[in-house]
Amino acid sequence: MSNRLRGWHLMFASVITRLCVLIIIILLASWSIYLNYKVGYNNARLVELADGKLVATFYRMSDWFFSCFGDPVAAMQSNGGMTWSIRLFGVQITDPIAATSVFLNNGQLAFGFFIGALIPLSLALLFGRVFCSYICPASLLFFTIGRLRRLLGRFFYFPELPMNRFFAWGVLCGGVVLALVTTHGIWALILPYFAVGQTIFHAITFGVMHVAVFSILFFIVVDFALGYQFTCRHICPTGRLLGVIGAKPLVSIRRDASACIDDCHSCEQVCTFMVSPKKDETRDCSLCGECMSVCPASCLSVGTKKAIDVSSSGIVVNTDVASEV
């Protein structure tokens, strides 16, 4: 299988996994409604009498689906939450930002909560910023906007604002200070994926529009007006944090310098995270595989960095030329 095809597979997989995360969030929220009906009525006919045919159909379908997980209240206790803090089959997964925020405010961390933060951190150490292109449901939105920008870019002009990484660090510090002054819930307006989670949860469980919708709208406008995946690159503090933690991951994109074409810059041009595989950058790479899919020489692959160092040890001259260009 060629590396280009592998790149397409990775891109396909990243979209699928993010869609799955989105579906899981929606399922968890609708599970809550099902729980209310199960405890309150426990009978499709009664639900139909109370709230109509549509809700009764929903109840029947959820009864069929959720009864696979056993007793509804017990099952809800091991599954719940959103990308900010989620329990799946009893395993607690915590956002590193949530852990930081609570730790700075309270000075101590609940054990399970702390352990939950190690999962995304170790993921970042192993694979880099994979959270951004494989888990984050908001980045699916920004990914779509990036495609739209590229498509419409043939007819319209979309600006690309130059920005440095310290803006996101500023957002992180400002957010932590704000969380100390107000509540940790304020992150729902700063972190895109938490905003998406809260919006979906409130829309489904309570049937109301959450304030986070405005923050999502703001991110959408910013993404259209200021740059490719601008929110992911320059606003989202989690992305910045994971980008730095996973700056030199165990598994990352690697380049076979002997096969690389000197004058070709297609991988740099296509990367929406503005990473340059050509210069062997790994920071902020989220393994989305887009550069692999466009590389004409098929010289990019995913793997451990060391393996490529051994294979390309004799071609030092080539990389020097590439970095001068």
């Binding site: 729980l35 719940g80 405010n105 509540t183 819930g185 809260q198 469980t205």
Partner: peptide, 17 residues
């Protein structure tokens, strides 16, 4: 207030809504 992260899991699990 210093501990609650607003994850809404309590609201999610509440059988009485």
């Amino acid at each position: 207030k210093s501990l609650c992260i607003g994850c809404a899991q309590c609201a999610n699990v509440c059988p009485n809504n």
